[in-house]
Amino acid sequence: MRLKFDKKVLEKESQVTPEEIFWNRRRFINNFALAGTAGLITGFPGMVQSQSNVIVGEELRDELSSEFVITHHNNFYEFSTDKKKPSEMAKSFKPGNDWQVKIEGEVNKPGTYTLEDILKHMQVEERIYRLRCVEAWSMVVPWNGFQLSQLLDWVQPTSKAKFVEFKTLHDPKIFPGQKRGIFGSHTLPWPYSEGLTIQEANNPLALLATGVYGKSLPGQNGAPLRLVVPWKYGFKSIKSIVSIRFTETQPECTWNKRLPNEYGFYANVNPEVDHPRWSQATERRITDNSFFGVKRIPTLMFNGYGEQVAHLYKNLDLKRYY
């Protein structure tokens, strides 16, 4: 039933990669990732593929970002709008397998499940994905998690389910960023919510992550369960999920509600549609935290995952539905 998927594209591995291999990131990428992604992004203008399967001039494109930058450069407004602070503030936020997730709405098996219940039915694997933030920076992240479609197969959305809505935990005691600021305003309308169409949720690329770099997710990365939709801007990949609701109508999404002219429901990575305040044609790829660990590279349509997802948007005007 599940779509057959190119093994190379997903960078699947039967086991979680041991840390020693991560240590030599460049070698690791040469062995596993580049070979696959080279095939993925052929056809992109200006990209030359050499005989050895290494993309000329694009060595950095798919080099893994260091564990430090992945865990110390986080947009997690529930903690702070600062990108470094979540790593400090999340130290005591260590949810375990008793974390509860509500499955609600148009679904045959609604209920409150613990993460442990869910994981019993899921197959966790490792996937290396590019992450492109709407702020025009990006990383390459080795996630551990399970395909969202597996969860859908298990909980069985009804035929009425056209969308999936996700919600982050709302608890200002854990997340001080959810409190009012000094002028009485909230940084965002809480709780954070995001949504996908049911077709997007069923796409094999959509992942529910439980770990990164072979370890369970740190608090600042959205412990213990977060969404990863690599062809969309990062804000779609909602963190610390407590509710998954299947709906007939398009759910409200936090950023879309806050600034509808800047953040759309679809939020597909698209170098041709600029953010009203900045260009999306290029991105600053963050590789490590050294002062020159950042390189500007061109942004790819659907973040380079067009082959897997472009068909979802065949009849959609992507300029209008950004």
């Binding site: 470094k84 920076w137 963050i286």
Partner: peptide, 8 residues
């Protein structure tokens, strides 16, 4: 300066 020192 965190993960993106240039921006910071």
């Amino acid at each position: 300066l965190g993960g993106d020192p240039q921006t910071k």
